[in-house]
Design a protein around this nucleic acid. Sequence first.
RNA 1: GGCCCCUUCGUCUAUCGGCUAGGACGCCAGGUUUUCAUCCUGGAAAGAGGGGUUCGAUUCCCCUAGGGGCUACCA
Length: 507
Amino acid sequence: MSKVRVRFAPSPTGPLHIGGVRTALYNYLLAKKNQGDFILRIEDTDQTRFVEGAEQYIKESLSWLGISPDEGPGIGGNFGPYRQSERKEMYQPFVTQLLEKGDAYYAFDTVDELEQMRARMKKTGMQPRYDTTSRMSMKNSLTLSKDEVEKRMAEGAEYVVRIKMPRKEEIKFHDEIRGYVSVQSNQIDDKVILKSDGLPTYHLANVVDDHLMGITHIVRGEEWLPSAPLHVMLYKFLGWENTMPKMAHLPLILKPEGKGKLSKRDGDRLGFPVFPIEWKDPSTGEMSMGYREEGYLPEAVINILALLGWHSSNNEEIFSLSSLVNEFSLSKVNKAGARFDIDKAKWFNHQYIIQKPEKEILDDFSTYLKSNNIQKNDEYLLKIIPMIKERANFIHEFLQEGEYFFSPPIEYDSKAMKKKWKTVGVEFGKEFLNKANQLEEYNAENLHQLFHQLIEEKNVGIGQVMPTMRLAVTGKAGGPPIFEILSVIGQKEVQKRFTEAVTKFPV
RNA sequence: GGCCCCUUCGUCUAUCGGCUAGGACGCCAGGUUUUCAUCCUGGAAAGAGGGGUUCGAUUCCCCUAGGGGCUACCA
């Protein structure tokens, strides 16, 4: 059995949609599961849609997520070049072959003529397309005399090459996810395979490249399913039927609500990213948010995307990239489109935040703090990270969650103040701090002990006095264990905050 | 409009003819906690409809309905 080789083949027309990222991921998983190769191929045959920086964006996204290609532009490999624009001459022999065998033909129709043809057909209730019947009334090498065709070519007339679809034939192929799919050939039009600028269209290019690059499995989005029969015909015409790659068409990622596939607009409207990393449109300057910048961990994004359309039968949901590689199978990929669920996405991120070692969180957290003009040493941060990480979905929430670690409270939870800011608590607090200030070591354990001693001595309820202390020092009603907070903030600062609170809110 | 694909809790999904239909997110209730979060326990919540096939259908087939995709010299 030959080595598994799969390709991810985006076109560099802008930022990579997360649906595309998932396609890349599934390709990667299939490759690695079988010790195969994952190839990045840039499908830039449409020069008019080329966007500066898009290719770099794609590579950076994949690299951030840890699904780096084994071969690709700038990476190397034995099947290059990996940009279709750089493979231009490689397609010509196959076009010639198709032409000579009569499986393709030249067409000289102008845009206007094509439009007229479509309008005409529509009017008479026919399907508007360039196909087995309508081609006979158009200007092409099937209708024009050989002399006329040669004359036009000699004059340098613009032309395209179209595939000549058989009139009546069942095209049947097997999809790894959907089973057998069959279509009548007369439902497919004579698609352009070579454009007038001399570059192939996607259809020809992907077939030729997949063949030349030894691709064994095509894993792509469901939007390609309708053109798959066309590709099958091309494999047939080119004589590659026996080595045709297996095909798998992935279900689409749908809007969280409403109709249709997930779009950038949904993200903007509902406030979540649809792109892996931030993107700035070079022509408009418009920014699109990315998962990376919004505080998602790459391993969380991988996990989220993996579960959108694929599921393990053992009910597990938390998967690292390497466990996905072990578990993944095309046969477990779902057929139906999956609605994107941002709440579950956040939950995944939360899981990975909790799981993540403090030292690894440190970098991101201190970078975030610096951008907010807050400087604290690593030792200090390392103490507070474990206290707040399970309370946050994102690292940028750490600051908000634990703002009292960086500055005295500005606001005090009014509901809690009303309920818990009472004489008994304040008096107790004063006495507790007096004693605490005498402590040899101002640490959580000692503070805890002292506090409980005093409670017994005074015979007060813990709920009457502890919230008071928390409110005075943090301004909040909830949070990590109070004695740990006190010990981290430090004796002097605690005393200061308490005194201030008492002054502000006399009882 | 035409063609193709799809259809289990609100959402992601398990089930490959035997189901008291399982899990996860979210939601609700209880427990733990001074508190919030975490964690634990419990709860509400689904097989689009109609026909077949079968001893038996969520599972196989057909029809209807609904959803999605494609329908360019774009990918």
